[in-house]
């Protein structure tokens, strides 16, 4: 069927378990036909479009701790049920993790962000996910509850392909945690869409930097790229180059070239691969320069 138009949602059962363990067990028992539900902003669209056919949606929003947003000396923990608008509205986040708030602000529209969650955005594992870059460069760690109980996994390495991650049946990401950020750090997210609001990114570029005496250059930078590879990508060679070379326009330019060389975009309806590669170069330069301005302000 070429015209993939379904007028309504297919039938499914809404499941709201009382405990995390109950939820994990249910998901494990119904592997392949059950899915954890956070904000639903992607799930319902995909089900309506006929792409997903889950029989059960398991709501994790009110389970232990998933509704919590905590920012203290131990760092920042954002529960799976916390909406992006709540993240943006939290003064402690804007104060201590402004990059995360900035990334959330670029997602869809205000209306959708009242439902959309960061954990949902991560588990969705879209190469275009707008908050993924920030979570990667800030060193996010996922708290995962499975049938064996809790474990913690680093976000880097979590993504294995478009829409694919390392979670196993029964796993529920209950929260993402960030350690306190290095002193005097700064970051920038630049999203290039076709128009100003609520588009998927052609390229999303996240840069983050902070002073670090262990780096030869005195600074360490992290660079994450969206929509330019099968998974969200960290530009390792560019990061390493900047740890070795003094931060200036020249080295930012070189780092941008390395970032561009590291990505493997495709031609699609949103953009050509050629334009994406060129934009990774342009936006990496810009994001590094803006981050540097913030660091030296």
């Amino acid at each position: 069927m070429t015209i993939n138009a379904h007028p309504e949602l297919p039938d499914f059962d809404y499941v709201r378990p009382a405990t995390l363990m109950e939820a994990s067990q249910f998901l494990a028992q119904h592997a392949g036909e059950a899915r954890p539900l956070c904000g639903g902003t992607d799930i319902f669209v995909r089900m309506r479009d006929g792409l997903w056919h889950d029989r059960y949606l398991v709501d994790v929003k009110k389970l232990d701790g998933t509704a919590n947003l905590a920012c203290d000396a131990a760092g920042l923990t954002i529960g799976a049920g916390v909406s992006m608008n709540r993240v943006i509205a939290e003064a402690a986040v804007r104060q201590n993790y402004p990059l995360l708030a900035e990334a959330c602000c670029s997602v869809a529209s205000h209306q959708l962000r009242t439902r959309a969650t960061i954990v949902g955005n991560l588990c969705n594992a879209s190469p275009a996910g707008d908050t993924i870059g920030a979570c990667l460069v800030l060193g996010g760690r996922l708290r995962v509850h499975g049938t064996d109980g809790f474990r913690e996994i680093p976000l880097e390495g979590f993504f294995t392909g478009p829409g694919k991650n390392t979670l196993r049946p029964g796993d529920i990401v209950t929260a993402i945690h960030f350690a306190p950020l290095p002193a005097h750090s700064a970051g920038t997210y630049i999203k290039l869409g076709r128009n100003t609001w609520s588009d998927l990114s052609i390229v999303g570029l996240t840069a983050f930097g902070y002073p670090d005496e262990t780096a030869a250059s005195g600074y360490r930078f992290k660079i994450a790229m969206a929509s330019v590879a099968p998974t969200p990508l960290l530009a390792h060679k560019a990061q390493d180059f900047l740890a070795e070379n003094p931060p200036n326009l020249q080295s930012f330019d070189q780092a941008a070239r390395l970032a561009s060389a590291a990505c493997s975009p495709i031609d699609d309806v949103r953009s050509s691969a050629r334009y994406r590669k060129l934009m990774v170069y342009q936006l990496t330069k810009k994001a590094l320069q803006q981050t540097w301005e913030k660091l030296t302000r």
Binding site: R194, N195, T196, W197, S198, D199, V269, R270
Partner: peptide, 9 residues
């Protein structure tokens, strides 16, 4: 993927 101008454009 069929984009139209919004108020911000």
């Amino acid at each position: 993927d069929y984009r139209i101008a919004t108020t911000s454009d």
